[in-house]
Design a protein around this nucleic acid. Structure first.
Lengths: 217, 217, 217, 217
DNA sequence: AATGAATGAGACTTCATTCAT
DNA sequence: GATGAATGAAGTCTCATTCAT
């Protein structure tokens, strides 16, 4: 089956890069980057070692000098820190900031995050592979996502401590407050970058109102 | 690569039965059902026609008497009405129901829906294939999902009309009010049925509070 | 592999004929006719029972009511009298005919014969299958072609007896005198009906001169 | 359908050899050679990539490293110079040679040529595929055969210029003078090497007389 | 570290043929 | 006699992986 013509740009042109000799670490990282794009675009089974290699400017055999198998690439990909959704803080307290300012800053960060192709790729890959490799995905959730979630919650808690946000059921569970952003991300994937802009804007606006309402007082 | 041992039960050893002759309508539906399970479990590329056929109790060639190609199965799957998330109403107004009762009834339905393996399969498939076949997924969104969303919003509107729910920014956009359920669905997929129960319960509880807060007054 | 677009017209449109109930003999003959077209066009291996059946307005299974197997069709085809190159006489003596008249009458018949799509199909089929089934083709040569050759030679002999043609080495071997017609037939197959007209005309003219020369005196 | 037991020797059980690594040029040529044998023996559709590969001592996948598809092999086969009927001259003038000597030398060459299994294979393949791929065969005729024919005619012309052969309608069209050899080739294919010897001898004898007669004076 | 020819396994698809209706 | 669903075998092609260079 031919994939749609309109496949996302990120996945186009695995054009053969010039042959270069690079340090192992750099190569490994290049390969992981390339693999993320390919795996996310057509899934683990659909992706081919050949294309991943091409994307890095290697032959298949050359790639095998760095990774034992396609599977090993996938494993390392899920384990890699690059797979942490983000390291940038979302909820950031700043001296004398109002609730509105804090919420708007949060929205800026989180909607910028979901617009990031890499984040989209990671999300798609995880959902896709949750069927084929539930164990690995669960492991990712525990080892990569949970710590990330703790950091996010920690940020929120600090905002509460500083009095910028109220202490209530909603500030106690950051993920609930983020749920609309997940809706936006899913919409983005299902509808595509182009068609989703309006819808995303609406979701974001609703998200803003919601946060202001839930965090009011 | 072998998929994890723990792969969801839905995706297991199909049993081969003796040669049976069925009407095209029945067979086609059987095939679509089987295909949904397989595609969702390992993606379109990973799924094999052989297994889909086995699951239906047919040989590969038998399957090809009903569908022109693997691709055609996928196409029809996305187009089939069965792919409409659900036809049961979510927001249901009833004479003299309180806000709490209405919200609880909604939560019952929506969390029962996301617990449904078929719904999970559809969601996973759509996200997975949004990379490989964005056009087809977009089409699904337009032709299958949008009408569904309109029905849901219509239900909500009726509750507002009957005075059960207030008219405000949140009742005007049902998807916003559903966002936490999406979070629950994603959590379910990433963590697995077993491990996610507690988390789901927490999300649901937060969801409930959120709705009561947003719809209060 | 897709065959050329330009495939000979004779092989086009195996359009489904209306379903009719016919006597076995008629059906068998229809099937043989259809099989000749298909076999000749793409060879025994390339031809499909399905298409042969369609061409007759039957389903595959229906065809099997008349022939035990694809192979049996082929066998009967080679054995059928229809496979005799022609039953019309080539060399025909007539009272007081001149050499030129006799030769021209012969040329009319033989060049009309090689222009006949059925004759072309038979020739192509025999050459093609001489690799796959040499035994069967040899049998055809013995049992179908040789008698035919004898008849042709008999006709020639009669012309000699009547004094229309001289008795010499060339009148003793009709096939030698026909060789240029074979050249024309092969040219026709290799170049196609359209492109070969001029060439055929030239060959025929040469053929005429040759016969007049060899049979002169 | 099993082909006859008596299928020509050229088309028999290929032996598998250990893994060998050869240069692309060598392999490609090996593959083309093998393909000619297989295609000619059972036609393009009947031939299998597996057998062609085996004949070369490769696996299917190995073969696909050199050719994109079965079709591509066929294309290149028809285009390859090896497909030129022969490069050796047929009509060769030599100082003071008599007509008889010149004719006999010609007959030696041309009957040796049609006895060559490769020539037979090419002829059979072209006739067979003239149904399935008329365009390609026509192209072969134009680009490969025509130049060959010109060379042959040129040789004849030189014999005329040197006074060895007369200038007349028959020396002006070499193909006419060759027609009996074509008859011999076709007889060879239809009857088989063994059974045709006598017949071939007779045709050749007739051919000789014919040439001497037509070229006399 | 890198290549490219080679491999074995397996995927999709087609087809001659059967069988219950 | 005819049908259409079903089958088993086989064919083309792809792909992860190996190995000699």
């Amino acid at each position: 089956m031919e994939a749609d013509q309109t496949a996302s740009k990120a996945h186009q042109a695995p054009a053969r890069i010039k042959r270069t000799r690079l340090s192992p670490e750099v190569r490994r990282q290049q390969i992981l980057d390339a693999a993320l794009v390919e795996f996310s675009a057509i899934g683990f089974e659909g992706a081919t070692v050949e294309k991943i290699a091409q994307r890095v400017g290697l032959t298949k055999a050359g790639l095998y000098a760095h990774f034992k198998s396609k599977d090993a690439i996938f494993d390392e990909l899920l384990a890699s820190t690059m797979f942490s959704p983000t390291s940038a803080s979302h909820w950031q307290w700043s001296e004398g900031a109002s609730l509105e300012e804090t919420v708007d800053r949060y929205l800026d960060r989180v909607y910028s995050f979901i617009g990031n192709p890499k984040a989209q790729a990671i999300f798609r890959l995880l959902i896709s592979e949750s069927g084929r490799s539930p164990e690995r995905v669960r492991r990712w959730h525990e080892q990569i996502f949970q710590p990330h979630a703790l950091r996010r919650q920690g940020e929120l808690d600090e905002c509460v401590a500083k009095g910028v946000l109220p202490e209530n059921d909603f500030s106690r569970k950051f993920s609930l407050a983020s749920a609309p952003a997940l809706l936006a991300l899913v919409t983005l994937l299902l509808v595509g970058e182009q068609g989703a802009e309006d819808e995303i804007a609406k979701i974001r606006e609703g998200h803003r109102l919601m946060l202001l309402t839930l965090f009011s007082k």
